[in-house]
Simulated assay, not measured.
Amino acid sequence: MTTTCITPETAVQVLANEPRLWPPQSPLDPGPRGVAIRVLVPGKATGYQYACVETALAPKLLGPDPHLHHTLDELSLVLSGTLSVYVDGTVYEVPAGGMQLRPAGLVHTFFNATDKPVRFADMFFNQNFDEYLEEYFRILEAGDRSPLGHGDPAIVRRFAELDERFGVVMFHDQRQHFLDTYGLRG
């Protein structure tokens, strides 16, 4: 019997209908920005049926601004710590080993209300949302380098184009509520 181990570099060569195994990786650290992601299963490797991204979030940190996806369902599996997930007016506290589903069309965000880092795997179905996240962080870094910061009209335009392409609607005006209510930074 032969077992094929898939690496991120070879994943795109695998056909969507073949069995596969991804090797374990060391735990992800939130890093200097307080949040880090890494693609565990690229959408390309599954014919865009499924993608999985690991996220590490520092203590007392808000994730993205509240938002919704027109067509994307998200399923989070908490690997360590406790993840707080807001969905349409309800906050779910998801401990390690727990899962939380966010169907398309519901306003949601996530945050770490605890004093310890949280790690979780987000699974995305029928969309290459791993590519959205990779591009999002590239734009964020470009905003860091811009003399005008993230308010640079070119940066704002790139974010808007990315959201439009992936069917994301952001509610930036709701961000401050989460920062104040839960004592978060962001």
Rank of each mutant, 00 (worst) to 15 (best):
Y50C: 07
T55F: 15
D73M: 03
Y86N: 06
V91R: 08
T82L: 04
T55W: 08
P59W: 08
T71V: 07
L62F: 10
H70W: 05
P59A: 06
D88Q: 14
Y86D: 05
V85K: 06
D73H: 13
D73G: 01
D65Q: 10
S80A: 15
E93C: 03
S84T: 04
T82K: 14
P64R: 07
S84L: 03
Y48A: 11
T90K: 13
L68N: 13
D73F: 03
D73A: 08
V53P: 01
D88I: 04
T55P: 01
G89R: 09
D65F: 11
T90G: 00
E74I: 01
G63Y: 12
L61D: 02
A56H: 08
C52W: 00
V91Q: 07
D88A: 15
Y50I: 08
T90F: 03
C52F: 00
V85N: 06
D73I: 02
L62N: 11
G89M: 12
L83T: 09
Y48I: 13
T71D: 14
G47Y: 08
K60E: 07
L68H: 14
Q49W: 04
D65C: 13
H70K: 15
S84H: 15
L62G: 08
S84P: 03
E74N: 02
L75R: 06
L83P: 07
